[in-house]
Computed example of a mutant assay.
Amino acid sequence: MRRDRMRTTLLAGWLFADLFLVLVLVGLASLPVTTKEGTPTSSPKPSVTAEPPERDRLRKRPVDFDIEIPPARFRDSGSQAAAMRDLLSRIDTELAERRLSRSRAGFVLVFASGPQEATGVAQDTAERIYQSLRRRHKVFKDSSGVGYWAGANSDHLEFKVFFYE
């Protein structure tokens, strides 16, 4: 009987020690993290990202269209204004055909063609075309975008426009 009591006491002691160890570990884990200077940092809280409202979500597929205006017309100061008017008119036509005249563009990719040795010039032209489009056309007013070189095999502009749903 004395032996059973001793086993029970020994078992209770081990359980108490294990419980104490678990409580110490939980206590240490709950302490704030400090920097080398000793100032506490806030622990990162998990961010909860809510689904954006439907109207602020971009469509998964872009609307693609080509405009047969040579990018060089936008680099020539004599034809630049006429080229922009022509571009705006053709974009209005493209949007009307697709019933997108009242839509909002979210992201725009503009591709301008040009010789391979002048890819930077073509890319700069595409960027300037996008910036002008953003300033002058209500559909593109609040969009983001970027210009790229479209290759040397053609002499036109390509657009890939992601509209809001």
Rank of each mutant, 00 (worst) to 15 (best):
P46Y: 04
T93G: 00
P70V: 11
E97S: 14
R55M: 07
T35C: 00
S79A: 04
E51M: 05
F74N: 03
R90D: 09
R73Q: 07
G78E: 05
D92K: 06
A96D: 13
V48Y: 08
R73Y: 11
L100K: 14
A112I: 09
L109Y: 14
D66I: 13
L23C: 09
F20Y: 11
V48D: 03
S101L: 05
A112C: 02
L19G: 11
V108C: 08
V33P: 00
G106V: 06
S43M: 03
L25V: 12
S42K: 15
R73G: 00
E97D: 13
Q116F: 06
P52H: 06
P52S: 09
S42C: 03
S77A: 15
L95E: 09
R55H: 08
T34N: 08
L58F: 11
L31E: 10
R85Q: 08
R85V: 00
A72V: 13
G114K: 09
A118Q: 12
L109K: 15
E54A: 13
M84Q: 09
G114T: 06
Q80A: 15
A105M: 00
A118D: 11
P40K: 08
V24E: 02
T41F: 04
R57D: 00
I69C: 05
V108H: 05
A83M: 01
E68M: 08
G38S: 07
P46T: 09
S103H: 02
P40L: 09
L88C: 05
V108Y: 08
G78W: 05
E54V: 08
V22I: 14
D92I: 06
A50R: 11
S30L: 11
S103M: 03
Q80I: 05
R73F: 02
S30I: 04
F65K: 13
R98D: 01
L21D: 03
D86P: 01
D92V: 14
R98W: 01
T93A: 10
F107A: 09
G38P: 03
S101H: 01
P53D: 04
A82F: 02
V108D: 07
V108E: 07
D86K: 14
L23I: 12
L95M: 15
F74I: 07
R75G: 02
R104C: 00
S42F: 06
I67Q: 06
G27P: 02
S113A: 14
G114M: 04
P62I: 13
P62M: 02
S43H: 09
P44K: 15
V48S: 06
R102E: 12
R104N: 08
R98N: 04
R75T: 11
E94M: 12
R90Q: 15
D86L: 03
F107S: 05
P40T: 15
E94R: 15
I67Y: 07
L31M: 13
E97Y: 10
R59M: 03
P71R: 03
L58H: 14
V24Y: 07
P40H: 12
K60N: 10
D76T: 14
G38T: 08
D86I: 00
L95G: 01
E94F: 03
R57H: 00
Q80T: 12
A82R: 02
